[in-house]
Amino acid sequence: MKHIVKIMAILVAISAFWIGLLQAAVIPESYTWLLPLYFIVSLGCYGLLMVGVGLMQFPTCPQEAVLLQQDIREAKDFMKKNGVDIGPD
């Protein structure tokens, strides 16, 4: 099944549930009409929250840049010793 179909199916299920709520009138109708809006807003909040959390916890590795420079020096020495012409830096 194509992925878009899965997502559509979920949306259809949610809509069906919402229409059911409208019909059954277990909660006041004016509230029910606002539910899709809440849904979209909470989806947006979820997205922003995830991006925010991701940014705050963004893993960085400054020490790796230092280690890489050491590795590069080591490799360059080896190339010089073995006569591989890697040219000027």
Binding site: G47, G54, L55, F58, P59, P62, E64, A65
Partner: peptide, 28 residues
């Protein structure tokens, strides 16, 4: 993007785009 992993040399804009793209892709 897990413990033990990481990125070096990206500015805030680059990190933001990367996180945004990732959240979008994970969700969809």
């Amino acid at each position: 993007y897990v413990t033990g992993g990481g990125v070096h040399g990206w500015n805030l804009m680059r990190k933001l785009t990367s996180r945004g793209a990732n959240v979008l892709a994970q969700t969809l």
